[in-house]
Write a protein that binds this DNA or RNA. Structure first.
Lengths: 115, 115
DNA sequence: CATATTGGTAACTTTAAGGTAACTGATTAC
DNA sequence: GTAATCAGTTACCTTAAAGTTACCAATATG
């Protein structure tokens, strides 16, 4: 466990874990990151690439990701306005987190299913 | 990112990430694991150690954790019935996940706050 | 005898996330 | 001239998770 220490130490470190989970969990965030990473940069492009996501939810999630500095929103003020979303280098810092989750998820599914 | 590969590969690996998040995310799961790890083994003990958790939620979360084989529920059939919850060794396999989340959470909070 | 503790369960209410549909105003395509 | 596309916003509705309250039967405590 994160802790062989005191309960207090443990619970205080929970905030950090929760912060990370905020960014990474939820139904859409990783899908959106993947979509942009794989070449979709316009709002409607991203939306079309992710089955069943609504404009409303996509708009909100994009805002969240932008606040967390994982993606960048650039407005090119031609007419009609053009908006582009790109992945920021900071998003790469999530690699370890995602890899850890992925690895554990894979082995866990094997373990639970083989019973 | 997890992926420099195709969109399809990415999205397929999402299930593993989601599996892991199911186990680790949520308001209570880690708090309960911590509580048991630090010496609370009885239902009411655990409940008292975690502020504001209701019997209902605790009972449900304990069942989840048991299904995932992270904890063990043992009933000693004395009268009155005694129930004991203990951490299984399998819970230790979560260490890497929690550490990755923790590390990222710490640095992320620093980064967002110093702005 | 009354009250508290044990490990929960049942019924009900609240909250939050997400879904649905319609709409914007400017521009292009048919 | 009608419809579609762009990037969203708004108001409303549904659903699931979580919280609230009360309760159980057995035992121990004062």
């Amino acid at each position: 466990m994160v802790v062989k220490h005191s309960h207090k130490e443990c619970t205080s470190s929970l905030q950090a874990v929760r912060d990370a989970l905020d960014v990474v969990s939820g139904k859409w965030k990783l899908q959106i990151i993947i979509s942009i990473t794989t070449g979709n940069h316009r709002f409607r492009e991203i939306q079309r690439s992710i089955p069943n996501i609504s404009s409303k939810v996509l708009a909100k999630e994009l805002k969240d990701l932008e606040e967390h500095e994982l993606i960048k929103r650039t407005v090119y003020d031609d007419s009609p306005v053009l908006v582009e979303y790109t992945i920021l280098p900071y998003a790469d810092t999530l690699d370890d987190v995602i890899k850890a989750l992925y690895d554990w998820g894979i082995q866990h599914r094997k373990k639970i299913l083989k019973k």
